[in-house]
Design a protein around this nucleic acid. Structure first.
Lengths: 322, 322
DNA sequence: CTGAAAGCGCTTACAG
DNA sequence: CTGAAAGCGCTTACAG
């Protein structure tokens, strides 16, 4: 591996000059620049990024802490976040927390000792006070408030939930049910059942909320849901995937969605296009969320003030299922 | 941030001694060790990993190059690979190539300038001769031969394909069809249609192979497949996801899988458990593939010889669909 | 068992 | 416009 010193020697210049050429910083005469570039090319010199990062006391890397890569929601975010970061010259350190708050903290500690620039943490489990200890590292959260100092990027789940519940109520004639994960007490996601309840109550409509633990097996759970909701003809699923599974099951019972019962849902996953119907769903702006998270993080890295609550607009997909 | 120098000064020892304590290397008297540990605790010293990596000329990081995070196959691998690497003290640098060979090479170059320890590349697109230029960085591939020097971890797709095709032929009475992605000319994945053809010919059974481009829209494609296969009652799908989508569509046509037609498939995704039937499928050993890839990479990093063709056993899920 | 010193490959004042 | 020098925070021979 050729180093700067080799280049400098071969070009008969100082290493500072080579550095200036590489970084396009300071003054270098045209001839010197060309000479240095020629030598760089000749010896196949590539700057040692590790040394650069060390010298700058900051790695051009950002940690991405996510609960899982198998789940669709985080998969979509991961895709866009990595892309945005790459375009800004940052590499993405993947940290899979497996839904464990202590693992999230462990990762943050390690990342910090690596002098990385910052971290984006999606759907975190970390408790507020613990996370607080680590806020010297610039952090941005997606879909959950961690504390006053950590910006959170999200859509207004409560409002979106109200809107889509209105839609459901306008079609369903009987009781309606909200079906979703229920363990994230302080997560923004919990605004979904809240908005649902709120809207049903406002309309004086009978309703129920059925919650599931994220470790529960999906199919037995959905069967239980079916058994519990014979008096319902409207469903609000907390995530698209569950909605699809329910619709598929109902089909085997000769219950056709959009005709015999209605379904609305949340997320707008890109896999929704692979179904024979269009799911009526709140569309999470995955790309916009990712961009906002990355941009906010960059501001924090550059010590620029940012808003701490970043709310993005969403769309409602008007589909066939409600 | 306290540094080693701070600790050394406060403990009245040399920085080499602090280093020895931290690394448990060389001789340190019990008292000195305890004193240093006490001071480390007092000042909250955390070693600067970036500096360590720089000094060692190797970052404790491994690049993971994958085509996408939205697709299930890579999602499962990513999960296990990250976990294995973490357990061995390595961080995972996520590189999403978006199915582009030049992007893969671009990533490899950057990773190398970061002095990372090695890279795992799943389902690569890179062409052989180009990749060759980068084999100074230890690389392991999953599911594709890149060149003679790069170990490839995979299951015997040809054999598995033959076996599952046998299964299909034992049930189907009419023509059978293979349906899958068709653009990876030199990929191991292409052994699936090969095994299918081979087995059908051996049995003298009418058959056809229908291939799709990975950028093609799934649903229109599957509709086309349906239209083209009215004379078929057996399907071998190159991946589970497509199988499920086809089965769902057929259901709407009152064609019941396992009764009116038969389906076998490849991958054994963990989401398969979320369907009302059990898909008859070749089970990719995701965890074993990941472990083998990581272990092989570690050997390469430590300059140990390894086999270059690493074949893992698979299972066949005996399901309801065939 | 311990410490002073060199060096990893860069960048950045500083002096010219 | 250019180069010699210091220093980023470590590890590792080396001498004691």
């Amino acid at each position: 591996m050729a180093s700067m010193k080799d280049v400098a020697k071969r070009a008969n210049v100082g290493i500072a000059t080579v550095s200036r050429v590489i970084n396009n910083s300071g003054f270098v005469s045209k001839e010197t620049r060309e000479l240095v570039l020629k030598v760089i090319d000749e010896v196949g010199y590539v700057p040692n990024e590790l040394a650069r990062n060390f010298q700058k006391k900051q790695a051009n890397m950002v940690g991405l802490i996510i609960p899982s890569t198998i789940q669709s929601f985080t998969g979509e975010l991961t895709y866009h976040i990595e892309k945005e970061l790459y375009n800004l010259g940052y590499h993405t350190l993947l940290c899979i927390s497996n839904h464990a708050g202590d693992k999230e903290l462990e990762y943050l500690e390690k990342l910090e000792s690596h002098q990385i620039a910052g971290a984006i943490i999606t759907a975190p489990f970390m408790s507020v006070q613990e996370s607080y200890a680590y806020n010297h590292l610039p952090i941005v959260s997606i879909d959950r408030f961690l504390n006053q100092d950590i910006p959170c990027v999200h859509v207004d789940n409560f409002e979106a939930s109200c809107r889509i519940t209105e839609k459901l109520l306008s079609k369903a004639k009987q009781k309606v049910a909200y079906v979703g994960l229920g363990s994230f007490k302080s997560g923004i996601t919990q605004d979904r059942p809240k908005g649902f309840r709120n809207t049903c109550i406002r309309h004086g409509r009978p309703h129920r909320v059925i919650e599931m633990h994220y470790k529960e097996q999906l199919i037995p759970y959905l069967r239980r849901v079916s058994a519990m909701t014979h008096d319902c003809d409207g469903y609000f699923f907390g995530c698209d995937y569950h909605a699809h599974k329910h619709i598929a099951w109902m089909y085997t019972q000769n219950q056709i969605v959009g005709r015999d019962f209605y379904v609305v849902s949340f997320d707008g996953l890109s896999t929704n296009k692979d179904y024979p119907y269009i799911l009526t769903s709140v569309q999470q702006p995955f790309e916009a969320l990712s961009k906002a998270a990355v941009q906010t993080l960059m501001k924090r890295i550059n010590k620029t003030k940012t808003k701490t609550d970043i709310v993005l607009p969403y769309q409602v997909i008007e589909g066939d299922t409600c």
